[in-house]
Simulated scan of single mutants.
Amino acid sequence: MKQHGANGLQRAYLLWTIAGTSLIVAAVAGASVIEVLTGTADAGSLVWGIIGIAALLEALVLFAVGLRLRHRYLHQVQGYESRGDYLADDGSNRVQIPLLGDGQARPNITHEGL
């Protein structure tokens, strides 16, 4: 159960990475896309224009799906099962804060300067 939430956020970042790559392809084919949309494309420009339009649509869909995954991850209730494990004790006597926090860690703040 706790791996599902982290995987959702990781999947969103992966989808955004792929969307960014698709945007690069769409940018490379940008002039051809404009020629296709205006109707002045020759055979080679038509192929690149179609590839550019497909890459742009793919990027938009992947970005929207990534936003949906991120939204679902951020709005799920974090319980003891889904928040993650405590950090391993490294012997430094520092406060061990849970990975996502559950409000149980004592604050390490002093108000000596006030």
Rank of each mutant, 00 (worst) to 15 (best):
R68A: 08
A26Q: 05
H71E: 11
Y86R: 06
W16E: 12
R94K: 14
Y86E: 04
Q104S: 15
G91A: 06
G44D: 14
G101Y: 07
I53G: 00
G8A: 11
G44T: 12
D85Q: 12
Y86V: 02
G66H: 02
A59S: 11
I51D: 01
V25Q: 03
L14H: 13
Y73I: 09
L87G: 13
K2I: 08
L100E: 14
L37H: 03
G20P: 09
R70T: 10
R106L: 09
R83T: 04
V28Y: 15
Y80I: 15
W16Q: 09
R11P: 00
S92R: 15
L69N: 00
S22N: 08
L37A: 03
V25I: 13
V28F: 09
I50M: 09
D42W: 07
G8W: 03
L62Y: 00
I97D: 11
Q10V: 08
Q96A: 12
S22W: 06
L67A: 05
Q10S: 08
A19I: 01
K2G: 15
A55S: 07
L23M: 11
V77M: 04
G101N: 07
N108T: 11
A59K: 03
A88C: 01
Q76P: 02
A59E: 03
R106E: 11
A41E: 13
A88G: 01
L9P: 02
D89E: 10
A12L: 01
L60H: 09
D42K: 08
L9R: 12
D89P: 12
L46V: 03
E35I: 08
A29R: 00
L99A: 10
L99V: 07
L87W: 08
V47T: 03
A12R: 01
R83G: 02
I50E: 06
G44E: 14
L23I: 04
N108G: 08
G91S: 05
Q78P: 10
A31E: 14
I97P: 02
V61G: 09
H71S: 05
L74W: 10
L87R: 15
H71Y: 14
T40P: 03
S32T: 02
I97T: 11
I34E: 05
L62F: 04
L9D: 13
A88F: 03
L69M: 02
A43F: 13
I34F: 02
H111G: 04
Q76D: 13
S32I: 01
L74A: 08
G30H: 13
H71M: 11
N108K: 05
Q76N: 07
G8L: 12
H71T: 11
L62A: 06
D42V: 07
H4Y: 13
P107R: 09
A26E: 06
A43I: 11
D102E: 08
Q3D: 13
Y80D: 15
G84F: 08
L14E: 15
A19H: 01
N108C: 09
T40F: 14
A6S: 14
G91K: 02
L56W: 05
G79T: 15
V95Q: 10
A31P: 08
V47D: 01
V47G: 00
I97N: 10
Q10K: 14
Q76V: 10
D90F: 07
G52H: 00
L57D: 07
A105F: 00
A19M: 02
G30P: 13
H4E: 15
R70V: 04
A41W: 06
T21D: 12
G20W: 01
D89G: 06
A105S: 07
S82K: 03
G30I: 11
L9G: 09
A54Y: 00
N93I: 02
